[in-house]
Computed example of a mutant assay.
Amino acid sequence: MTTTRTDLWPWRRIFVVGLLLWALSVVVTAVTGNPTLLPTVVLLGSFLVPVTFVAWATGRDAAPAFTLARVAEAFVVGGVLGVLAASLLEQYLLSPSAWMYLGVGLIEELVKALALVFVARGLTRYTMRDGLVLGASVGFGFAAFESAGYALNSLITVQGLSLSQLVETELLRGILAPVGHGLWTAILGAVLFAARHEHRRWRITRGVVLTYLGVTILHALWDGMHGIALLLVMALTVTRRQQLLLQLGYLPEPTGVQVHLFTLFNWVGLIVVAVLGLAWLSALRHRVEREDGPR
């Protein structure tokens, strides 16, 4: 698949212009202290990277099976339905436990898949290529609305509204967005569409089930990496004094080495999960190239 220089300009313009507008909004908000500008900062920061990646993905297919309106529906309707359904199910089905992150992954990947099936109704074809693009649109829509919620939570602190925490949250989630929900739903969407193409109707095949479980595990590892890193640090470096404090119900103060190890383990773990997801996506794209050929 080849991409011309002109094909790349739309998503580049979206990213550059959006980034400049977001930065300008942050500066003006900080200078004026005007709280009515905060929704602008939240929305621009939360939607910039997801919208850019959807524009990039849709621009790579010279003969898409769906219109831009269908992509917008996948992003907005799929994202909102996914967030709402996941919130309801997680509220009533999950409780704090060691398996909570796995439960979150199972629920969120399921509702995104169902949202994808809903927005894909009536398409003229169902190929892996189309599943990758439309699945990414649903996943990035989910990520955008979820990021907006996290941004609002970080904004409200016990000391009042914190613009700095809002900006830090949006920067971090923006950097990590490409290897999160959009990636996982693109993978599952490709396999779902391949099964739909082969059987002429939606089928829960062995490949679909294994892919669903696979992206769920990636999701759970991603969400739970903070706890995994903490457990690794405690297992490798915990002192007798810290053990005693934990037994007495106190939270011990970490040493400098433990803080650095925690940061290292956390980021290395996230990188490993991201690489696994990207390698999986790359394998699917190579399969698309072999089966469909360049467009």
Rank of each mutant, 00 (worst) to 15 (best):
Q165F: 08
A143L: 01
R203N: 11
I204L: 15
V179A: 15
S147H: 02
V209K: 04
R173G: 00
L188V: 13
G214P: 01
S147E: 03
L163M: 00
T157I: 11
T205I: 08
L166N: 03
S147R: 03
G214Q: 10
P178G: 06
L163F: 01
G141V: 09
L152S: 09
L218W: 04
R201N: 14
L192E: 11
L155S: 02
R196I: 03
R173H: 08
Q159R: 14
V179S: 12
A177D: 14
G174F: 02
L213D: 01
R206H: 10
A143M: 06
A144D: 07
L172W: 12
T185Q: 11
A148S: 12
L218E: 06
L183C: 09
A186Y: 03
L210F: 13
T169E: 13
S154N: 15
L161R: 01
H199I: 13
A195D: 14
L163H: 00
L171G: 10
A177P: 04
G180H: 14
L163E: 03
G160V: 03
L221V: 12
A186L: 05
L213N: 03
V191T: 08
A177T: 09
S154V: 02
R196N: 05
R206K: 12
Y212V: 07
I217G: 13
H181A: 12
L188D: 06
V215Y: 01
V191Y: 02
L161G: 09
W202A: 15
H197N: 15
E146H: 06
S162F: 01
W202Y: 15
S164G: 10
Q159C: 01
L192W: 01
L192Y: 05
Y150E: 02
G141H: 01
S162A: 11
G149I: 05
H181P: 10
R206I: 11
G224F: 01
T205D: 10
G207H: 13
I204A: 12
L213F: 07
G182C: 12
W222G: 02
T216M: 06
D223C: 04
V158T: 14
L218M: 14
L171F: 10
L171Y: 03
L213Q: 05
I187R: 02
A148D: 05
L210Q: 13
Y212N: 01
P178H: 11
V158P: 13
T211R: 00
H226R: 11
H197G: 14
V191G: 00
H197C: 13
A177F: 02
A220C: 07
T185F: 04
Y212Q: 00
G182L: 04
I228M: 08
G227K: 10
I217Q: 08
R201C: 09
G141I: 07
